[in-house]
Amino acid sequence: MGSFVLGGVTFGNLFKKPATKMYPVVAPTYTAMTKGSIVNDIEACSLCSICAKKCPSLAINVDKPGKTWEIDPFACIQCYTCVRACPKDCLTMLAQYTAPSTTKEYKTLVKTGGDDEKAVAAAE
């Protein structure tokens, strides 16, 4: 009895679009909320290192004298803590996931100060 019900479902599925996507060929759809990766608008950043102190996985390092801000994208757990804690609102969560990599490297941003060009961490 039950097999015929499932048989009907299976037969119907033959004429429908597949429920899955051919992932690398067809781009995945992200929603506005999707937590992918953290980017920092380094010129707006005041290097206060609140994000580094709040981070549960200690993924962020801030060096105030050296004017650098760095994140380990593979240690980041996309928990939004730093985005909420940031007093300058310069951290944002992108829907794009971190690109796969063969090495675990910190992504380092250097604050130049005074320049108009904005460095965005999304670029590898």
Binding site: S49, A52, K53, K54, L58, N61, D63, A75
Partner: peptide
Amino acid sequence: TVTYRDSKSADQPTDGQEGGN
């Protein structure tokens, strides 16, 4: 203590910090 890197380890959260969310 939890440290990920020897040279530039991030500060541990301490008692005196402003807390909450």
